[in-house]
Every structure is written in structure tokens, then in C-alpha cells.
Design a protein around this nucleic acid. Structure first.
Lengths: 351, 351
DNA sequence: ACTTGTTTTCAAAGCGCTTTGAGCGCCGCC
DNA sequence: GGCGGCGCTCAAAGCGCTTTGAAAACAAGT
């Protein structure tokens, strides 16, 4: 099996046909007779013929690769949510014969990367991660005529491009309502970085729910940081040291929630008893049992980021293969999963 | 900035030079005069000229991409360790002008993916993840003459290829010694899947340390499963329900350890007091404070998987660009970081 | 002036595929 | 008998780069 690589020319010679016919036979063109097609396919399989990607790419302009640029904003943190998203997207890509290209760059260099993708013809399309308010990338990509799908929403979703987002605002509205119904009034929000739209939406959902209930949210109970376990832990310790600690904590990720839970236990408190914990759960594969028999632990608003990855890739491939079609937008609702970390407000936490 | 894409021919015409000269000027060949080179470079910059990747690739056979195949062994779990590794590798790749190609496949299809990479000329080399005992991939890749670097060790590292691994055996030997020194005798091992070499090595290190201390490891205290938080949690509850529970738990990842800690707290035990917890820590970015000022929480054997990613990518690029050079092998030592989750054995846990 | 050598430039031949435009044989239809 | 149409196949022209082999330009040595 050393070096079998046959090229089109050799295959054609072997068959006594022209390259044209062989190429057409393999690519399913109608103008080749079924008998010939079968012969060609058989020979191709026997010789393990596979067209060179770069030659095909040069001839067609297509690369069968989708780009993902990972910005290392402050020299830190590739977030684990990304890897689950990629896993989902990768499944779809594999199914359609695409590869995923990943390029890391400083945030300021991102525009350059897109131009590079286009002028060097490296990818057929890209997915845009972590949109911010008035995200400039949308305009760049449009002007470059590079197909793209946004994971999240830019321009409030009004814009004329494909996107898929979770209804973060509603998710946090509902989460807050759930806690309010349990009697909680002092609710802390441990949000992700709020220049990212998803985090801003979550904050808004939380605030809306509070004001619908006639309550004013206490700004001192709200924070926004990268979603690390240590953030949940440190912040919870701070909150518990207050004169008026919260009776419930709303977290932007399960990672944060794990830190919160750890801090609670360290302080001798039990999640779901003295302090309730509710997290947004991206259904990360490594935080969940592989078999779903066990009772959920964290109460959470859940939506699978991996499923989102799958769908976003489908949407992207559709834009690539039928650019004339109209863009699609999907807004997914997160599902409330009640676990053991929430419970009715209890005496202790009353201010 | 709409469609600037200039090609070599146009650039050459514009300069009144031949394509040859322009190409050579840009690629740093010595036989072009400095004056001409400067002129060409200036023009290239002004026109934002970038050579088409597929054309260059077709002409040279190089792709400037390194492949990573992610096997979805049982339809589940892309593990978060992978994403940190990729982040590291991505940094190096970006520095050297390479892209990372990711392809998902069923484990049985992996051989086919490598062949595809080679015959379709998709990548210049690959990194091999998660080597197992007598891993067949090594032989495949060698017979395909595709440059590769193994993250981990195959063939006990004797083989003639580049690899980078952590000394997992020593790490777990030391970790076990550390616990033994604290007086622990009943030590549970929550290992990763032991068909993977790194996990087998860790088990061996643990067993060696035990037998060096004249102790026999209790097989009922050892388990091997995918490294999920829920695994740590469930398994710890099982262990605590035993007549003779362990006084210390050794975990193959921080994720597992978080589950262990949670289970301990739920049972009213404190990590570091009644039960010690020591984990292998890949220094995953999302489980650690971004600023390192805080005291470490988990006691751990630590080695950055991200740094490993960086180095593996360097080694791979070296193999790609100088295949005649001799392969490199590196064995990294993990560092012991003492946190708050370990302490001397205490009365309660005595059987 | 004429060879010799060195530097700088070029035309043209690939790399391996797709795709255009045409050819050929054959049918049926006016 | 000529003509359009249909079914199948092909030669050749790209796609945009690199690289070979040779030529042109210039300087230096006899």
C-alpha cells in the first residue's frame, strides 16, 4: 500500500478513455453512459483513485473547507465551549465531505485573516464566533463576499445573513422567574464578558424578569468575567462575605457553577439549601454523564452547543453550495432542567 | 476593498517583469537583485497580492496545513484536553504560517482518513493523538510516508519517530509517594481509559509506588473511565459507601477531581481533611485563574497540555520542513503543586 | 575584440484537475 | 437528402503558481 496515488491521467489511460469522460463519470454528470460510468467507478475504486484537493481546488475555486478563526484576545483562554461547538460542526462537515480549518490570531488581526482566506482561497466559508454589538466582522465578510454563518446574533438578527442563536434573553428571564417563584429576591448574576452579545442578552433577560416582578436588581450582585471555575469560586466567596449575601446565584456557565458550589461547600453551605444555584448549561460533553441515567445535578437552562455546531455547519454549507438561496436564522429556546441545586429560599439567607 | 485579488500574472505585467522574477523575488531566492526585489515587494504590498494556496500547493506539493483527526470513538466526547492542546498547537502553527485541519471520523475510519490526506494532498503532516499499546496508526503513517508526531508514546518510545510525552509513570509514582508520606494507605485511583497509553502508564506508576512501599494496591479501589466530572462524583459515592473507604483519591484529571470534591462535600467530608484528593492537572485554561495570584486549590501533578501542543507542532513542522533530520523525542516531567486538598491521614478514615 | 564568468531576467513546461466547445455516429423528421 | 436533435466522447484551454533551462546583460580577464 506504499504509494498508490494514481492521477486522473493515468486512470484515463488505463481505461482507454479521455480525462474528460473519466472526470465526468466520477462527478456524476448526466452525459456519460451508465455502462461507462460503472466501468470508471470500478476502476477508480480498484486503483484507490482520489482527486488531488489542490488541483480540484485550483480548477473549481472550491476548497471544501470551512474556516474558524480563534482569537486569542488577551493571550489567554480558548474556551471549552468552543471545543464542543467544533465537535458538532465537525460531525456535519465530515458528513458533507468538508474539512475544518482552524487559525489562531490576535483579535486585531482577524480582519486580515478573513482577507487572507479569500485572496488565498483557503476556505469556502467561515463561521463567526462570539459576535459583539455592532460587530465589524459582518461588514468585512460581506464586502469580501465570503459565505458565513454567525453563531450568535449580530445586528440584533435583523441583518441579511444566516445565524443561529439561543434565546439567551428568554432563558435568563425564565431562570430568574424560576428563582423568584422559589421566593428568592437577592439573586446574584455571574455573567460572562458582556461585550459579547450572548452575555449582554442574558443580563437583559435577568433585568427584565426582575423589573417585571417589580424588583430592582442590585448592581453589586452582578459581575461579568471570563467563564472560569475560579471566577465562580472567588466571586461567591466575596458575595458571601457581604452583609447581605444573595440567596441564589445565576451563572452563565456550568464551569462557573462548579466554582460557586465549591465555595458554598467551603463556607459550610449547601447548594439548593441555603443558597440556590442555577446555571446556563451548554451541555458540554465532559461535564455530563455519558449515559444519561443519572439525575441531573445542577438546575440549569440547557441547550446543546454541540447541536448548535452541527446546525451552524449545515447552514454554512448550504450558503456555500447555494449562495443564491436566502439566509436562514434560527433562534433556539433553552430548556429548563430542574436539578438539586435549587430550592425555596430559607431563613438564613434573609437579609 | 471589494475584490482586490491580484494574481501573479497581473502583478508581473504591472511591474514589467516576468512571473518567474516576481515569484522568486517574493520567495526570497538569491538570484534576484536587491533593487528588483524591493520594487516587487513594494508592489505586492500595495496590491495586497497573496498567492493562491491551491495553486501554490499544486505546484509545490506543500499545503501548509497540519492535520488532526478526531475520532469519535463511541459517538461521544471530544475531550476538553483536546481543545487546550489545539490552542497550543494553533499558536505555533500561526507563527509558522500553517493552518490546522480538523477532521472527525469514526475510529475504524481513521486509517482511511490518513490515506485520504496523503492521496488528496490535504496536509503536510499530522499529529497522532491518544496512542494506544501497539498503535496501528504508526505503521500506517510510516508506510504512507506522511510526516507525523505522536502526542504521547507508542512503542514505548523506542520507535524511530518524533514524539512528546509527559512522564506519566513517574508523575503517578511521585503522587502516590506524596500521599503515602502523608500516611495514606488506602488510596483510590480514578484513572482514564487504560487502553490509552498515558492511563496505563499512570496506573503502572501508582502500582510501582505502592509496591516500593511494600504495600499491595487494592484492585477494588481502581477504576478506569472517560474523564468526566460525573465519573469522579459517582465513583466517589460508591467508594465512600464501602466498609473500608479510601483516605485518599488519585485522579487522572482535574475534571474528575471536581466531581470527587463535590461528592465529598455532599457526604459531609472535606477534601484535605477526612479525604485527600490529588489530581493530574493538564493546566486547562478554563479551570484555572487567568491571573495566577490565587493559591492553588487542588494538589496536583501539573504539566501544561497547551505547552505540549505548542511543542508538538514545532516538532511536526520541523519534520515537515526537514524530513531528512532525525526525529526528536521529549519526555516532560510533571510538577507537584501542593494545594489544599491533601493533608495527613486522619482518624476517621482508618479502617 | 573575444572568451569566460557572473548576475539578472525570461519563456515555457509542468502540477492535476474541470470545463468549454466541438466532433462523431445515429436517429427520426420534414 | 438534408437538417436538427440526441447521446456519447474527446482534445485542448484554462486555473495560478513554481521551476527548469536558456538567454540576455554586464563585468572582467587575456
Amino acid at each position: 500500500m506504499a504509494r498508490p496515488s494514481v492521477n486522473l491521467k493515468q486512470l484515463a489511460e488505463q481505461l482507454g478513455l479521455s480525462q474528460t469522460t473519466v472526470s465526468r463519470a466520477l462527478n456524476g454528470f448526466p452525459e456519460v453512459s451508465e455502462r461507462t460510468r460503472a466501468r470508471v467507478q470500478e476502476a477508480a475504486r480498484r486503483c484507490d483513485y482520489r482527486p488531488s484537493a489542490s488541483a480540484a481546488s485550483l480548477a473549481t475555486g472550491r476548497t471544501f473547507a470551512v474556516g474558524n478563526v480563534v482569537t486569542q484576545s488577551d493571550g489567554i483562554v480558548i474556551d471549552p465551549h468552543f471545543s464542543d461547538f467544533i465537535a458538532g460542526a465537525g460531525e456535519t462537515c465530515a458528513r458533507f465531505g468538508y474539512d475544518m480549518l482552524i487559525r489562531m490570531a490576535e483579535r486585531e488581526a482577524e480582519a486580515g485573516v478573513y482577507r487572507d482566506f479569500v485572496s488565498r482561497r483557503r476556505v469556502d466559508g467561515v463561521v463567526v464566533h462570539g459576535p459583539t454589538a455592532a460587530d465589524p466582522r459582518i461588514a468585512w465578510l460581506r464586502s469580501l463576499a465570503l459565505p458565513f454563518v454567525v453563531h450568535g446574533r449580530a445586528d440584533d438578527g435583523k441583518a441579511d445573513h444566516s445565524w443561529l442563536d439561543v434565546n439567551n434573553e428568554r432563558a435568563f428571564h425564565r431562570a430568574t422567574d424560576f428563582l423568584l417563584d422559589l421566593g428568592h429576591r437577592r439573586i446574584a448574576l455571574l455573567n460572562g464578558p458582556e461585550h459579547l452579545n450572548f452575555a449582554a442578552d442574558r443580563r437583559r433577560g435577568h433585568l427584565r424578569a426582575m423589573s417585571c416582578a417589580g424588583l430592582e436588581a442590585d448592581p453589586r450582585l452582578m459581575s461579568a468575567e471570563p467563564m472560569l471555575e475560579s471566577y465562580g469560586h472567588r466571586r461567591t466567596r466575596e458575595l458571601l462575605a457581604r452583609a447581605e449575601p444573595p440567596s441564589a446565584v445565576l451563572c452563565a456557565s456550568t464551569l462557573i457553577a462548579l466554582g460557586v458550589v465549591r465555595a458554598l461547600y467551603e463556607s459550610g453551605l449547601q447548594p439548593g439549601r441555603q443558597v440556590s444555584v442555577l446555571a446556563y448549561d451548554d451541555d458540554l460533553s465532559f461535564l455530563h454523564p455519558s449515559t444519561r441515567v443519572e439525575v441531573p445535578y445542577l438546575t440549569a437552562m440547557r441547550s446543546s452547543i454541540r447541536a448548535a455546531g452541527r446546525r451552524v455547519a449545515e447552514m454554512l454549507i448550504e450558503r456555500i453550495e447555494r449562495p443564491e438561496g436566502s439566509p436562514r436564522a434560527e433562534l433556539w429556546e433553552a430548556e429548563l432542567v430542574v436539578g438539586t441545586t435549587t430550592g425555596p429560599v430559607c431563613g438564613m439567607a434573609r437579609s
